[in-house]
Design a binder for these strands. Structure first.
Length: 283
DNA sequence: TGATGTGTTCTGCT
DNA sequence: AAGCAGAACACATC
């Protein structure tokens, strides 16, 4: 499940491989309407408009990938749960779940062509093309909360204090904070010793300061380790991440707590799974 | 054969 | 208005 560190790993991989290259053609597999359709352009425009566009920049906002192209266009990508990119110089056989394949020509000095595959067996992932001026509103960037790695601890505390809801659903809400998913919320709350169902406004400043610290520490450590591969996640080079070996709570139900030895439990919080230690994380 | 999990959006309720 | 629950999406994995 790509969350902030996984998406960051992907954009770094894309920068290494496709930045400054030109899109020669697009191959669309299966019925692509829901995957590439946008309010701005019809399906047939997707192929036509991407042709001969150069890739100028690749950025991340929350879990959103933004690929800036020539002619004032931005390709917005959301991996959702199982979407991933795979880059290769040699044309690979088309996988059943390769939904979009970009044929790229080398940047100056490089004469070999290459291919970028967008693969998603669950087909939740989305790729959409927007004119620059529509991006903010149409791609939902307007609604996103602050970046977890950029928010100041004082702003983070203020946000938590003014929200009357359980901390776990708050952290998962992309308009509250943009980039955390189930793995990093569970891990952050575990290290900060905060119960996932604790009302966010009722958590002490000291604990929130600690939570802010662990969110940033874990995200940075996960980025350094190329993300977490628990399902199908892998980088643009096909390599899985290494952060799963650091996980202490997520998918650790039944195992002894790293801090106190009590059994890690798994419950439902707001219809999502939550893993925590009932002794270290009290309500 | 059926339940589960996963991110996000939507609808409808309090 | 704010927050919550549940459904929907799609499908590999158990």
């Amino acid at each position: 499940m790509p969350e902030l560190p996984e998406v960051e790993t992907v954009i770094r991989g894309l920068r290494k491989t496709i930045l400054k290259k030109t899109i020669k053609s697009i191959y669309l597999n299966a019925p692509p309407s829901s995957i590439v359709l946008s309010d701005s352009f019809k399906i047939k425009d997707f192929k036509r408009l991407l042709k001969e566009k150069k890739i100028l920049a690749i950025n991340r906002r929350g879990k959103n990938i933004l690929i800036t192209l020539t002619d004032n266009l931005t390709l917005w990508v959301h991996l959702k749960m199982t979407g991933h990119f795979f880059y290769d110089h040699n044309p690979k056989p088309v996988n059943k779940h390769d939904l979009v394949i970009f044929h790229l020509s080398g940047s100056s000095g490089e004469k070999t062509d290459s291919h970028l595959h967008f693969n998603d067996y669950r087909r939740f992932g989305r790729l959409r093309l927007f004119p620059q001026e529509e991006l903010w509103e149409q791609a939902g960037l307007k609604k996103l909360g602050p970046e977890p790695l950029e928010i100041y601890v004082s702003d983070f505390i203020a946000r938590c204090k003014s929200s009357h809801r359980m901390i776990k659903p708050a952290l998962l809400d992309q308009s509250f904070l943009a980039g955390l998913g189930n793995i990093y919320t569970d891990e952050s709350l575990y290290f900060a010793h905060i119960h996932p169902q604790k009302l966010s406004s009722s958590i002490s400043k000291k604990k929130l300061t600690n939570l802010h610290y662990h969110i940033q520490r874990l995200l940075k450590l996960a980025i350094k380790n190329m993300g977490t591969s628990v399902d199908s996640f892998s980088g643009v080079n096909g390599k899985p991440g290494r952060f799963q070996k650091y996980l202490k709570a997520y998918h650790h139900e039944g195992n002894p707590c790293y801090f106190c030895g009590h059994k890690i439990v798994k419950i439902k919080v707001g219809s999502r799974s939550a893993h925590f230690c009932p002794r270290c994380q009290r309500l």
